[in-house]
Amino acid sequence: METDWSKVLEVFGSGIIGVFLVMFLLQILTQLSTRVIDAVENRGKSADVETDQSVVSAKD
């Protein structure tokens, strides 16, 4: 059987790019959701965190 090299390259390229894109997307969403949860949970706990944040941004 003749090998269809354009198909091989397509699978190869789209595979590598695809895996990275999907995992990167998952990374962003995981980071986002954990940050949202952090923010919600911290607001519930104390208001001190707010001041911490402002100190950091003031330095910047």
Binding site: T3, V8, V19, F20, Q27, T30
Partner: peptide, 28 residues
């Protein structure tokens, strides 16, 4: 979560094997 990219990295490696296997005469 950055380690998700490392998981992707290792998996990207398997596409090189795919390429090598085709060179060895296996079908896709």
């Amino acid at each position: 979560p950055k380690t998700l990219l490392l998981g992707a990295g290792a998996q990207a490696g398997l596409y090189f094997t795919f390429f090598a296997a085709v060179l060895f005469g296996f079908d896709l």
